[in-house]
């Protein structure tokens, strides 16, 4: 593989982590719930996914258990904010702290261990094409599934009755309830779905992208996923584009090193965070546009009473 091929192929692989987590957060936010515990959910799932894969050698099982772990953690958040009406921002932080602590506790005996890496799928004929072949047609199955999922989620939100129910709940839960939509159930479902995808994102990070466990390995990617939802103005296509952009930026360090550039590695490590801040500032400047695109009741608790 040439450096360019390696770079572009790696971009898709790195983007998959961001995209999975961001799609989950998108669905939760569309239903009006701001779940800031993505980083923590990913960390727990990454630890459990690694542990299961390491012990059984079965990647699929690792993914499944990681997904379940993500759902369980997200249900703690759902119970706190949806049933007990707690502040979503503070609860998200709390569950995030719990998640990071749990991940360190679970992964303690597995620190720095590795598992064999998995091969990508070689799509016949297409993978033989120079440049495009290795970049697009030799990726891991999860990469294809994730981008397919983006299309499915985009379509579901926009064109189906389920999507309408989710969007109504996020825009105005009082009206949605009056229309007969089960608001609490929808919000629970959307938060759990977000937990599932954050779980898969964590498992992908610790078992496929870099097949090892290290405490703190999620390294802010969950937070960048939350930011991606804002960058994409709650639209799947733009979120996928943003994920690819950040996949590319996060490879900057590796690429610069391989080319022998003399930039301090700490500056390169900071790059994704700096880019996040800059893009966030640019996207958010238009206040009216942001309000138009964001789910209207996002972050507000809903106690089941009739409209305000």
């Amino acid at each position: 593989m040439s450096t360019l091929e390696f770079f572009l192929a790696g971009t898709f692989s790195a983007a998959t982590i961001f995209l999975l987590a961001a799609l989950g957060e998108l669905v939760a936010e569309k239903s009006g719930v701001l779940n800031l515990s993505v980083e923590g959910m990913m960390a727990v799932s990454a630890a459990i996914g690694f542990l299961v894969t390491y012990e059984t050698g079965n990647h699929l099982l690792g993914f499944a258990v990681a997904g379940v772990a993500g759902v369980l953690i997200s249900l703690v958040f759902a119970l706190t904010t949806i049933t007990f009406l707690a502040n979503q921002v503070a609860s998200g932080l709390a569950v995030g702290i719990l998640g990071l602590g749990l991940s360190a506790l679970i992964g303690r005996d597995y620190e720095s261990l590795t598992i064999p890496s998995t091969d990508g799928i070689q799509i016949p004929v297409l993978s033989e094409i120079p440049l495009i072949g290795p970049v697009l047609f030799q990726q891991n199955l999860v990469v294809y599934m994730t981008f397919l999922l983006a299309i499915i989620i985009g379509y579901t939100l926009k064109h189906t009755r389920l999507g309408l129910a989710i969007r109504s709940t996020g825009e105005n839960p009082h009206a949605a309830q009056a229309l007969g939509f089960p608001v609490f159930l929808i919000r629970y479902g959307c938060v759990a779905f977000g937990g599932l995808l954050a779980g898969f994102a964590g498992a992908y990070a610790s078992t496929i992208y870099t097949p090892l466990w290290a405490d703190g390995m999620i390294a802010g990617r969950g937070w960048i996923a939350v930011a991606l939802v804002v960058f994409g103005t709650w639209k799947t296509g733009r979120i996928a584009f943003g994920a690819l952009l950040f996949g590319m930026v996060s490879l900057g360090e590796l690429i610069a090193q391989s080319m022998g550039a003399s930039i301090p590695s700490q500056l390169l490590s900071s790059l994704p965070y700096i880019v996040t801040i800059v893009v966030l500032a640019i996207i958010s400047t238009d206040k009216a546009r942001m309000r138009l695109h964001s789910p209207f009741s996002l972050g507000e608790t809903f106690d089941g009473t009739e409209g305000r």
């Binding site: 609860s91 932080l93 569950v95 995030g96 719990l98 990071l100 602590g101 749990l102 360190a104």
Partner: peptide
């Protein structure tokens, strides 16, 4: 491990 304290702190706030 010191992470047990973080677990406790997270639970406390939740």
């Amino acid at each position: 491990p010191i992470s047990a304290v973080h677990v406790f702190q997270g639970l406390l706030l939740i």
